[in-house]
Design a protein around this nucleic acid. Structure first.
Length: 847
RNA sequence: GCGGGUGUGGCGAAAUGGUAGACGCGAGGGACUCAAACUCCCUUUCCGCAAGGAGUGUCGGUUCGAGUCCGACCACCCGCACCA
């Protein structure tokens, strides 16, 4: 064989790796460990380019660390519970279990040809009873530890399909299948007490040095710590038991700008009024139709209803404010009631304008105050002049004024300073079949009773159908009926299952001992935790990563993880999406028709119809801008797919898939293979100084590529490999020097294109498998240059350059610069105003 | 609406506050070939014949020097608690 043929090479090396069991993670106390984890996939049935990119990046890290002498854990599993399986069962028939396991088998078959360094012996799916049974055991421990409780919460209810809808299933306030107007309903549901950990989860973010700053910022904002004042309004004309309304404010300094009090439609007072006043009932019902997502509430038009009730201003009892029920007040945040200060909050300003309420400025700009045409909301750190202040200086910052206002209110018995968090408890109940059953029983005598651990796993029944609306567990003839684990009386099993975020909140821990008969194995967790490098999409920046951080703490508390694993992910990397152009034509009615990239050549369909090209967007089935990795691997090989996914774009940014880019990647790999082949056949030049130059280039390459991989700059590593290859191809080095150089190139490329690297390694007489070869080390002596080129700037613009010895002192450089003809011409005999010499970098002459 | 991010040639991009455009794609020219494919070599930010000038989303600022730092704005992307 004398040409690069991935279809021959790739299966051969995968077999070799498998036979040598090189990817099996070994608990070896003598060696340092390294745990690389990519976010596990949902088994949709097809892998996509996003998977290829994600898993290739993880594979580069895993293989590189392996070469550096670490005992590497690089596992793979399946986030296998969730709605799509039930939707498939409803739409196409069949069983979610069959659908899911068939998808897993398909995806595993598609993934394996990529040649990932995965320890497949640790594979599991979250829908395996062996996995979710252990999750149930932890649920019981966490329930026992007071980390889980029940309370009433709201869900989206589809009155036609008689089912609970996910937020994504609510489109413009209507159910996605039925089209019926969605209502809010209350159900008693299970919750994790994540909010007990608010301050800890917030403060521990500072320790996550190897997480992206943006993710830590997003989490900090999500947790949302605020300092404020809680106080009570005394009511006038309110029903009995509602003589006070507790409110929370982060701006107590604006108390004298209050013009109304607003309560949530779910506030107890609103609920009370709803039962007696049809107008309130109608308004509250309208509010509930907005849905449960914060996004929908925030985007909805701000509306309120005057209840007729009044409250007394706490600083002036002669001053009454109206009480509104307002659709934008969240019951979950603070006390579910606020006072509105229209002058200094845009939403309150809009509300006051709409309902004709007074707008009184509390403070104005310290300089050049302007009349209010919109809310005046300066930074809290900016000093302003208080015209209706009641505590602190007349001119002070918002921060100082808030502190002074809280102190004043505490001294005068008006209220107290409190710390509040935006983070709400994590509702884990789902009214669905395809999830982990919550292991409790409802007994008429004993109430809610935890299942006994020896009865776990509580398995999902297989004999269910999806031809009727609602949760099949609710109407299962026998599964739901059981006996009380405490008194033995007839009882009902809990039919809610767990949020799939629970499944993904501890899978990383399970990988350390996937077959253990307890959730984790202490010795294995001690050795392998924490995850040294976690890789996944930025879309998981908040929920999945925050829930996992909480769950690890809950596992520590219940003895399932060592204390060191409270923060489970030491380093996090968030990779960008894979995008592609969109090809579109229009049908007779003018509606868009999308076309697969493989059906488009040179901007035309097979029949010659030109297509409209829409700029790249995230690959999605609906826009048909998808490229199937299976086809790419079949046509070009896995190494080409891997190489292209790593080249061009920085890993954290989106990468555009282009057919020409894939071809170029393939051509380049063929070129490297050819150069290696020629070298193996004895090709070589004169040698001599060329040998030394090539050796120097190789060591520079080792240095640069190693640093690029360490820094997650795979695109730069690829660029350096190109450079090195160009140098190699042009070199006049002897065959011996070329052989040595090419072996090192094989090692440097091995994490990225492992099959090709093995082939080259063997071709050039490398010992054993390149995957087992230790990472090459750059010789520092070969990295230094004797001469440096210094650009000369005149007034900041580059006007020339000089070459000087590397260690020339400043005075020498200055003299050389002043002697430069271009500089002399500009100076025209005069002395420069300033001469800036940055050693080894640049010279700037200011004239 | 709120929170976070991104923006540099025809395209993907590179650049510890120090030569803007490394490397690759595409395009153009050439060599090889009967011809083509493959391969190899050269050119390629824009304006300009050139000298030279302009240029990193827009506007302003700090600095000897700004793609990089600061402020305002625009566009797009991610998240918003039951998609995973």
């Amino acid at each position: 064989m004398s040409r690069y043929d991935p279809s021959q090479i790739e299966p051969k090396w995968r077999t070799a790796w498998e036979e040598a069991q090189v990817f099996q993670a070994r608990h070896d106390p003598a060696r340092p460990k390294y745990y690389v984890l990519e976010m596990f996939p949902y088994p949709s049935g097809r892998i996509h380019m996003g998977h290829v990119r994600n898993y290739t990046m993880g594979d580069v890290v895993a293989r590189y660390k392996m070469s550096c002498g670490f005992s590497v854990l690089h596992p793979m599993g399946w986030d296998a519970f969730g709605m799509p399986a039930e939707n498939a069962a409803m739409e196409r028939g069949g069983h979610p279990k069959d659908w899911t396991y068939a998808n897993i088998a398909d995806m595993r078959d598609q993934l394996k040809p990529l040649g990932l360094s995965i320890d497949w012996s640790r594979e599991f799916a979250t829908c395996d009873p062996e996995y979710y049974g252990q999750q149930q055991a932890m649920f019981l421990d966490m329930l026992d530890a007071g980390l889980i409780y029940r309370k009433s919460a709201q869900v989206n209810w589809d009155p036609v399909d008689m089912t609970v809808l996910a937020n994504e299933q609510v489109i413009d306030g209507r159910g996605w299948r039925s089209g019926a107007l969605v209502e809010r309903r209350e159900l008693t549901q299970w919750f994790f007490r994540i909010s007990d950990y608010s301050s800890e989860l917030l403060e521990a973010l500072d320790g996550l040095k190897d997480w992206p700053e943006k993710v830590r910022t997003m989490q900090a904002n999500w947790i949302g710590r605020s300092q404020g004042l809680q106080f009570a309004f005394t009511t006038v004309g309110a029903p009995e038991e509602f003589d006070r309304i507790e409110v929370y404010t982060t701006r107590p300094d604006t108390l004298l700008g209050a013009s109304f009090c607003a309560i949530s439609p779910d506030h107890p007072l609103a609920r009370h009024l709803e039962r007696h006043d049809p107008k309130v009932a109608e308004f509250v019902a309208e509010c509930r139709r907005i849905g449960t997502s914060e996004e929908a509430l925030e985007k909805a038009e701000k509306k309120g209803l005057d209840t007729g009730i009044r409250v007394l201003h706490p600083l002036d009892n002669a001053w009454e404010l109206p009480v509104y029920i307002a659709n934008f007040i969240l019951m979950d945040y603070g006390t579910g009631a606020i006072f509105g200060c229209p002058a200094h909050d845009q939403r309150d300003f809009d509300f006051a304008t709409k309902y004709g309420l007074p707008i009184e400025a509390v403070f104005e700009a310290a300089e050049n105050p302007a009349p209010l045409t919109e809310a005046f909301v300066p930074m809290k750190s900016e000093p302003v002049r208080y015209v209706r202040g009641f505590a602190g200086e007349a001119v002070q910052t918002g921060e100082a004024a808030v502190a002074a206002a809280i102190a004043f209110c505490e001294e005068n018995g008006i209220g107290r300073g409190v710390t509040n968090y935006r983070l709400r408890d994590w509702g884990l109940s789902r009214q669905r079949y395809w999830g982990c059953p919550i292991p409790v029983v409802h007994c008429p005598d004993c109430g809610v009773v935890p299942e006994k651990k020896e009865n776990l796993p509580i398995r999902l029944p297989d004999d269910v159908t999806f031809d009727q609306p609602g949760n099949p567990l609710d109407r299962h003839p026998s599964w739901r009926d059981c006996t009380c684990p405490r008194c033995g009386a007839a009882a009902r099993r809990e039919t809610d299952t767990m949020d799939t975020f629970v499944d993904s909140s501890w899978y990383y821990a399970r990988f350390t001992a996937p077959r253990a008969t307890t959730p984790t194995d202490r010795a294995e967790a001690d050795y392998w935790m924490n995850v040294d490098q976690y890789i996944g999409g930025i879309e998981h920046a908040i929920l999945h990563l925050l829930y996992s951080r909480f769950f690890a703490r809950a596992m520590v508390k219940t003895g399932h993880l060592p204390a060191k694993a409270a923060e489970p992910f030491d380093a996090l990397f968030t990779q960008g999406m894979v995008t592609h152009e969109i090809y579109m034509t229009r049908d007779a009615a003018g509606r868009p028709v999308y076309h697969l990239p493989e059906d488009v050549t040179d901007g035309k369909l097979a029949d010659g119809t030109p297509v409209e090209v829409i700029p790249s967007a995230k690959m999605s089935k609906s826009k048909k801008n998808v490229v199937d990795p299976v086809n790419i691997i079949r046509d070009f090989g896995a190494d080409t797919a891997r190489w292209f996914m790593l080249s061009d774009s920085p890993p954290e940014r989106d990468v555009e898939w282009t057919a020409s880019g894939a071809e170029a990647a393939s051509k380049f790999l063929a070129r490297v293979w050819r150069l290696a082949h020629e070298t193996a056949e004895g090709a070589g030049g004169a040698g001599g100084p060329a040998d030394a130059a090539l050796e120097k280039a190789i060591h520079k390459g080792i240095d640069e590529i190693t640093r690029a991989i360490d820094g997650f700059a795979f695109n730069k590593a690829v660029a350096k490999v190109y450079e090195l290859t160009n140098t190699f191809a042009r070199s006049d080095a002897s065959n011996a020097a070329r052989r040595a150089a090419m072996r090192i190139m094989a090692q440097l490329m091995a994490p990225m294109v492992p099959h090709l690297a093995e082939d080259i390694w063997t071709m050039l007489g490398g010992e054993g498998l390149v995957v087992n070869a230790p990472w090459p080390k750059a010789d520092p002596a070969l990295l230094v240059e004797d001469e440096v080129t210094l650009p000369i700037q005149i007034n900041g613009k580059k006007r020339g350059e000089i070459s000087v010895p590397r260690d020339m002192d400043k005075a020498g450089v200055e003299a050389a610069v002043l002697a430069d003809p271009a500089v002399q011409k500009v100076l025209n005999g005069a002395a420069p105003k300033k001469l800036i010499v940055v050693p080894g970098r640049i010279v700037n002459v200011v004239v």
